[in-house]
Design a protein around this nucleic acid. Structure first.
Length: 565
DNA sequence: TCGCTTT
């Protein structure tokens, strides 16, 4: 049992079983004062509580803003500049011939000899001889019409061009590389020397995402003899057998698994013709970069096609990508550094740490529609918040990298199936994960980069669905607010003017900031305030939503199971 | 700074 839970309840026995029934759970617990949490400022005035000036020299009115612009460019500035340069350089390769298309969905291509986009999947048969059974699998996986990144990205991939694709979260990037890969793989792996061994490699920053990509690949490969494999301990072992290795067509892997297998000599990348870096900006960050370089070095085939995909690609990282992409085509869908417009975004000022906890309690008490995903900044805080919500009798689980592989898999599976209503997660879940029905993302801890914000909230509002994202902040988060406020503005959300007027803090000041842990006494106080008498009713709503979700989850699992056969 | 990545 968790010692912390015991402590925070003044020694009261903390027993999960107590919460298996809803009865009497919340009796006698007072609903917190509805106004105990500061509401978001409704005016454009700078709230007095927000003493931003200690994070930046000068202030909003000091004329400093102009000066900041003249300082050496940060990544975001460079990005904006890169985009306007592209725009200024003319509409060459711009497929948005008619200006009727809303900016948010506009596709812009730069590069030499950009192939024309497709307008339907069926077109791929005549144009690129894509087999009809592959297209049937596309259709039965639920893809009807190609999305922006697919219309342009698929022909580019099929013409074996290198590419940097930047497209919103939930807009179908996975299919944009998987479909062409299967179209180009040719005959499934046989012992014929030239075809032997893996010919395509997809690298992903997390195991969960690798597994998800693999599941999608299985759906597309259904009924054909292609073999795709996620590299992990078990599969790596199987690959020690040379004959088994020759049968693999497509490998999906995290960087370290792959490097490890490379060093052990149980995979060789000599025959890889298609290399995809998914969530490329993450993979090209320090910490991953060395391994990516090793992987690139291992892919020695002269006809290697490389493509990087992400919803975000800061200019500095794109520059790194451009060192290994050859004659790349850059595809950008929508506006750079903007969130999906189907997500309703809110920034909520909570005053303090305890204010955030109360805000969350109020949110739950007011009723939430599961599934809900809550992001925090560290493993420790994930654990703490998990226990807090468990105490509230919520159907909650937690996922982070300190949990075992089995626990992580089980938690994700249960969340997909609707058995877990609220999932507390670290950055681990921020990228790529496709939980189609997530209704709400809560950024309990303010994301530390714009990229993180965009990816986190992108777990909702996917594939054209509506979604909602609430981001809590306190004055500690001041240095990060302006850039996130700009994201809201760029995606057409209302945002108080004062947030946009904030000075841009220096990197140094950001670095000085440290997030304090959720303090035990804060939790004890907030928990004492209770979750509210309403919860039993709300639970009933949640249960019915959960049941609907479970049906969807099981259906999805069946599809994967079928594909595996 | 922390988060993430093999055994």
């Amino acid at each position: 049992m968790d010692a912390f839970a015991l402590l925070s309840r003044g020694g009261a026995q903390f027993d999960k079983k107590r919460f298996s029934k809803e009865v009497s759970l919340f009796n006698g617990r007072k609903r917190p004062d509805e106004h105990s949490v500061s509401k978001p400022p409704e005016t454009d005035e700078l709230p007095a509580e927000l003493d931003f000036f200690k994070y930046a020299e000068g202030g909003v009115h000091s004329g400093r803003a102009k000066k900041i612009k003249n300082e050496p460019r940060g990544m975001e500035d460079a990005d904006e500049a890169a985009d306007s340069e592209a725009e200024a350089s003319g509409s060459e390769g711009d497929v948005d011939a008619e200006h009727t298309m809303p900016t948010a969905h506009r596709i812009r291509c730069t590069g030499e000899e950009v192939p024309s986009p497709i307008t339907s999947f069926s077109e791929l048969t005549s144009r690129y001889s894509i087999p009809p059974d592959l297209l049937r699998n596309v259709a039965s996986a639920g893809y009807a019409d190609p999305t922006g990144v697919q219309t342009q990205g698929i022909p580019i991939m099929l013409e074996k061009r290198d590419m940097a694709a930047i497209a919103p979260t939930g807009s179908g990037k996975t299919l944009a590389f998987l479909l062409p890969i299967f179209g180009l793989l040719g005959a499934p792996g046989r012992s014929a020397a030239k075809q032997a061994g893996a010919r395509a490699l997809i690298v992903s920053p997390t195991r969960e995402l690798a597994q998800q990509i693999h599941n999608e690949a299985l759906k597309l490969a259904k009924g054909r003899k292609w073999k795709t494999v996620v590299l992990n301990k078990a599969t790596a072992n199987a690959l020690r057998d040379k004959a088994a290795r020759r049968k693999v067509d497509l490998i999906v892997s995290t960087p370290l698994s792959l490097v490890s297998a490379l060093e052990e000599g149980i995979v060789d990348l000599d025959n890889i013709r298609h290399l995809i870096l998914d969530e490329a900006d993450r993979l090209l960050e320090e910490g991953f970069l060395k391994q990516i370089e090793e992987i690139l070095a291992g892919c020695s085939h002269p006809e290697l096609q490389k493509a990087v995909f992400s919803a975000t690609l800061p200019a500095a990282v794109e520059a790194i990508a451009n060192t290994f992409l050859r004659r790349p085509i850059r595809v950008i869908v929508g506006l750079k550094d903007s969130a999906t417009d189907t997500i309703q975004q809110e920034l909520l000022f909570c005053g303090s740490e305890i204010g955030k906890l109360q805000a969350l309690h109020n949110l739950v008490a007011d009723g939430i529609q599961p599934p809900v995903l809550i992001f925090v900044q560290s493993i420790e805080r994930a654990t703490e918040l998990f226990h807090e919500l468990l105490y509230d009798g919520l159907n909650v689980d937690v996922v982070h990298s300190d949990r075992s592989k089995a626990q992580r898999e089980e938690t994700v599976r249960r969340f997909r199936r609707g058995e877990v209503w609220v999932l507390v997660a670290t950055e681990l879940m921020a990228r790529g994960m496709d939980f189609k029905g997530v209704n709400l993302v809560v950024n309990y801890d303010f994301p530390q980069t714009v990229q993180s914000y965009i990816h986190r909230i992108g777990r909702t509002g996917r594939a054209g669905r509506q979604g909602k994202a609430v981001t809590y902040f306190t004055k500690e988060d001041a240095p990060y607010i302006k850039s996130v406020a700009n994201v809201l503005k760029a995606s057409g959300q209302e945002v108080p003017q004062y947030m946009l007027d904030l000075p841009k803090p220096s990197k140094l000041k950001k670095r000085e900031l440290k997030r304090r842990p959720i303090e035990r006494k804060d939790i004890a106080r907030a928990a004492g305030a209770g979750v509210g008498r309403n919860l039993a009713n709300r639970r009933r709503d949640m249960i019915s939503a959960s049941k609907r979700r479970k049906v969807e989850g099981e259906k999805a699992e069946k599809e994967v199971a079928l594909a595996e056969e």
